[in-house]
Amino acid sequence: MNVISIPATEDTPKISLDPENNIFEFSGRSLPEDVVSFYQPVLEWLDELEANPIDNMEIAFKLEYFNTASSKLILDILLKLNDIYLNDNPMKIKWYFMEMDVDLEEAGEEYSELIEMPFELVAY
């Protein structure tokens, strides 16, 4: 499996998909103008993961903010992970939100209602 390591910018999140070190994380802000091309490498990586699943993955979302277009892409990523999970590959999502941030907490709850895999909301 390839390693994806994208550093954060002013309008895009940091993304680490690193099977060697067992780190799977999205963090920061996501408001690119062209969400599709930004997330394309991630979607391709997930296709690869489907063919070569990793045991007991824990994927962390530590996003502080995302625009509505990114919200759709995050849903696509979660649905794809859920398909892999349903194919008998145990994994778990951890959704981090700042304690005061009701909107981000609610966004996590709404995603969790749409997928079957374990989904933990973590306040910090």
């Binding site: 969400v35 919200s71 759709k72 849903l75 709404e110 209602e113 749409l114």
Partner: peptide, 12 residues
């Protein structure tokens, strides 16, 4: 939830 689920990228 409904609009996001059914959105296609051209319309987002």
């Amino acid at each position: 939830k409904q609009v996001r689920m059914n959105a296609s990228f051209s319309k987002v």
